[in-house]
């Protein structure tokens, strides 16, 4: 297994749950930070997307990442394609973090975190920001 740069495997010993470490890319707002990602693979992976969220103490402060770790990223939900891999998701997340210009939580963070289910795939996401 060869994880891409900035990604290290914390625990990938079963086929259902993987934990990966994601390092903030150099020369970005998240440089030097370490995050933890959790991948939950359903029985229909890769035809269905895995459930991906940030876990641990340090959830990146980003306009598309909620404080409960849920990530608003289209490729994780209705734009998922079975050719995507864990590596490609990590790359997408790196790119999403790297293009961030101001560290802030989403404006509706408080409400969402209160009402959201534990599985982000049950949320009806609206994707509108094409700049990241």
């Amino acid at each position: 297994m060869n994880p891409p740069a900035g990604v290290d495997i914390i625990d990938a010993n079963d086929f259902k749950v993987w934990k990966l470490g994601l390092a903030g890319a150099p020369a970005t707002l998240y440089e030097g930070e370490k995050f933890q990602l959790e991948f939950n693979f359903g029985p229909n992976y890769p035809l269905e997307s895995p459930q991906v969220l940030f876990v641990g103490d340090n959830v990146p402060i980003h306009p598309h990442i909620y404080s409960n770790g849920h990530i608003c990223l289209d490729v994780l939900y209705n734009h998922w394609s079975p050719v995507q891999t864990v590596a490609s998701i990590c790359l997408s997340l790196q790119s999403m973090l790297s293009s961030c210009t101001s560290k802030e939580r989403p404006p509706d963070n408080a409400t969402y975190v209160k009402t959201a289910r534990s599985n982000p795939k049950h949320t009806a996401w609206a994707f509108h920001d094409d700049t990241v």
Binding site: H64, C72, P106, P107, D108, A124, A126, F127, H128
Partner: peptide, 26 residues
């Protein structure tokens, strides 16, 4: 309350962030 707050926020700052539609059967 949230709707009001959101309206106010959106008026201020029309940028970014996913709009969280009210959860259906929460």
């Amino acid at each position: 309350k949230d709707a009001k707050a959101k309206a106010a926020l959106e008026a201020n700052d029309a940028a970014s962030a996913p709009i969280q539609p009210p959860p259906q059967e929460e």
